[in-house]
Nucleic acid binder design. Structure first.
Lengths: 171, 171
DNA sequence: CCAAAGTAGTTGATGAATCAACTATCGTCG
DNA sequence: CGACGATAGTTGATTCATCAACTACTTTGG
């Protein structure tokens, strides 16, 4: 078992790759499977009865915490780790549904602000309980406090290591 | 800051949701950001110089470990946590490129086997070093052994909690 | 032995993500 | 000032994912 196997050759040029040992492979595969199944299950929770998708939910959360429930497109893209293009399309769809509106940024005529509407806030309030309940059931309550805390610390490091590394969203 | 905030109301029906505390919110957000940035960076590594996408790579790995480099579509879907439909489309694309071929399953005329070709194996061997190097850099080497091991154990639990939960890929 | 229910996989339409190319504005420095 | 490079955001074409509907085969059980 190796997401990283493909051995059967020890010669070849001068590759000199450090492969993963058995334990590491096990952990790596659990990580892959776990994230995959988790996000699928969480997305399903949003499809069943919640008025916004998972991605839209995260966007609304960011806006809800910003002063004036307003954030520049570029700031939003950074917070959500989204490409500018993807954010444009997502905001397009949400604006059509009346969840957000676009307004010009006062000082900078290139800029566009994304503002949460009352309908957007209502959708957030509507979705929040189901969302949190699902996150608890699938993630938080599935782990010990200790494990969950370590998970957070570890993923903070991973985020750091991955930031910028090759094509950072909107290079 | 709360991916799960949206408070401002303590009345309302009988929701009775257990929100996340500050620490939990922090960990949850690091998890979101970390996974997002990690998979993006890993995908980028595959776009730059590797002959197969990340998803295709995982598929080839599974096949490489199966007896006869052959796996039934349904088994492949289960291992990769993919919907049957998505697997069909992915295998379509890979078959067009000669990385795999489809053959009938001997005993069961409903079944279809997916077999890795020599070209598929070559692509895997080609991609493996870059893949492993990226996984190390972004994940394994970014953490202590202890953290990485805990991450693996934690995600195994999460996978378990998420399995079956609402629309399991191919319900 | 037949009907009904379940399993395996595909299909095609629809919607979302990605990528490269583009417009417009801003900052800077010669 | 004025040109040049960086920044902000959009666009549209292409690729990929998702969903419901469908065919075909197998299994069960009456």
């Amino acid at each position: 078992m190796g997401a990283t196997t493909a051995r059967e050759r020890d010669d070849e040029g001068g590759a000199d790759v450090r492969w993963l040992d058995e334990e590491q492979q096990w952990a790596w595969r659990r990580f892959l499977e776990g994230t995959s199944r988790f996000f699928e299950a969480l997305g399903d929770a949003h499809d069943e009865g919640l008025p916004v998708t998972l991605g839209e939910y995260h966007l609304l959360v960011q806006l809800s915490e910003a002063p004036g429930r307003t954030l520049r497109m570029s700031a939003l893209a950074e917070f959500l780790a989204l490409s500018r293009s993807r954010l444009t399309h997502t905001v397009d769809r949400m604006e059509r549904r009346g969840l957000v509106v676009r307004t010009p940024v006062p000082g900078d005529r290139r800029g566009v602000n994304c503002v949460m509407t009352d309908a957007g806030y209502a959708a957030l309030v509507d979705a929040a309980p189901g969302h949190v309940t699902a996150v608890r059931r699938l993630l938080v309550d599935a782990l010990t406090d200790e494990e969950f805390a370590t998970l957070g610390r570890a993923m903070a490091k991973v985020a750091e290591a991955s930031r910028g590394s090759a094509g950072a969203s909107s290079a």
